[in-house]
Every structure is written in C-alpha cells, then in structure tokens.
Amino acid sequence: MSVSTAEGMAPDGVKETEGREPALAFKIALVILLGILCLVPFLFVLAISVGHKIEGAGWAFGFELTHYKRFLLGATWPETFQILYLQKLGYSLMFAAIGAVIAVALAFPFTYFLTRLTRRGQTVWLVLLLSSLSLSEVFIVMGWDILLSARSGLPALLDWVGFTDLMKDWGWFQWFRDIGLASPRAFKFKTSGLATVLCMSYLVWPYAVILLYPALSRLEPSLMEAARTMGARPSVVMRTVVLPSVKLPLFGSTLLLFVFLLGTYVTVTVFADPSQHTLAVSIYDSVRGSTLNAPFGAAQSVILLITAAVFLFAGQKLSNAGDRA
C-alpha cells in the first residue's frame, strides 16, 4: 500500500480543517440539487392544484379550491352531487389492493422455495426475476394483450379444447356473460376487471419476490429443522415458525406494491373497461390528454398522493403496534 505521499505526512489538525469546509459546501450543494429534482416537482403539483385554470391548456398561480371541490362534490355542486371522481379513486384502490394481495400471496411460497435453493440456483432465478421486473409495463401489457386476445389467446384456446362448448352445454355460459367475461359466442377477457387485476399482479410479482427475499433468506433453517424433528408437520412449521417471523415483511411489501399500483396507467387504459378507469387515467387526461385542465390534474395527483401517504402512515402505525404486541 502506498501511503507515504506528501499529503500523508501532513499533521492531522491541518488535514481536518482543510477537509471539512469544502465537504459541507458540497453537501449543501447536493441537498439543493436533489431538492430541486426530487422535492420541487411535488411542490409544483401542490401549488398548481390550487391554481387557476386558463382556457386552452394553461394555468396561473393563485388560490382557489374549485378543483378539489370538483373532485369531492362535483363541478356543479351544490345544485347536483357527483361521485364520478371518487368512484375513479375507488377503482384505483380496488384494483391496486387486489393486485398487490394476489402478487404477494403467490410470491410468498415462491420466495420461500427460492431461498431453500443453492446459492447458484438463487442467482439464476434472481437474474430472471430482475429481468422480468425491469421490463417496461408497455411490453408486459403487449404480452398479456396477445395472451388474452380473442383471435390467438386464451379465448381461442378455450374454444379449441372445447371448454366453451362444454360451458354452453351445461348452461353455465350465461354466468360468464353476466360477469362480463364472455361475448355471445365466446369468452372475452378484454376489457375486464379480471384482465386488469391479472396484469397488475403479474407486473408487481417479481417486486414482491425481491421484497420478501431478504426476510425469508434470513430465516434460521435450524429452527424449522428442530420443529420438524419434534414431529411437526410441514404445514404446522409453516404456521407456527415461518409465518410469524415474516408477518411484517409480508404486510410491508403488500402495502408498498399497493401504493406502486395506485399509479398504474398503461394496464388500466388497455385492459379496464372505460367505466372502470382509475384516477391515474383521469390524471393523464387532465394533464396531457383530452380534457386539458392542468390544475384539476394536479388536484387529482395530490389526492392520490394523500391516499398513498395515509395508507403508508396507517401501515407504519399498524406494524409498530404489531411489533410491540
């Protein structure tokens, strides 16, 4: 190691004072830069949400609560009361919650088995998982679009294996039509809530595995082996040893993925019925799309942000309480 350089010879005191001042200036510069890039955008959303809309796409700073009023009570309140946007928020919450729960429920056993593999096996799976995780939502939607399309996807397959005819013979086909999963002739998954939720949970499933991985890989194998030797069945070991120790990570990952899914855009536009479009789609329409009302788009973003914050905060409280119990 070559440490006998000139600066290495300098007395300690000199080095300290020389090093501290630029470091502090550098830190402050970094805070300012990151503040502009990571915090100011949210401040803009907040400021514009109470701003004034100018006809034709613009906005001006100001203070009015019309956009929040429109969201919560409808544009024509108090003459009439509209829940259109609250309904959109409801769909956002519903799709995100179901998607996150399914993803974590399916990721949990997978991750458990993954951590039992050899180091090499784990590495191979992690490469595959990360590749799938990073794949853009547009490609994933493309894949499921083909898989669910009437001409070459699941409906065609069901037709081909005779499932469609079987259902018609048994008279159960009408039920599928009633819940919106079939046209008069064949099965139809686009557009449907099922397709939306399916694609959403596929989207975050690899994230769920990656989030659960640290906790499950830290599970002490000797603990489980001890329980097994004492005659506990695998299901009992799972219930009494594994699940209690990963309860919090399970809850935490579900919450994080739920918040992530609140903002899903491409999946909803392609797979959800327009009557079930979520707040994310409405935000897009206001900011960039057909309706062009930037302040209203900002107000909707703030409400989505508050919703996410409320859930994260409540989750934090709950897990703290669970920790103490």
């Binding site: 100011v40 955008p41 959303v45 514009i48 900011v287 973003s301 942000l305």
Partner: peptide, 20 residues
C-alpha cells in the same frame, strides 16, 4: 430526498416533473 420519488405512485412524480 433520494427516496422520495420511489415512495410515491410514479405518475405523480411524472406530473410534477412535467410542471417543473
């Protein structure tokens, strides 16, 4: 600050950056 954009739905960060 660096964790901020990660903890919120990405669409909100996108909208904010667009405004900024």
């Amino acid at each position: 600050l660096m964790a901020m954009p990660f903890a919120v739905p990405p669409i909100v960060f996108g909208v904010g950056l667009g405004f900024m």
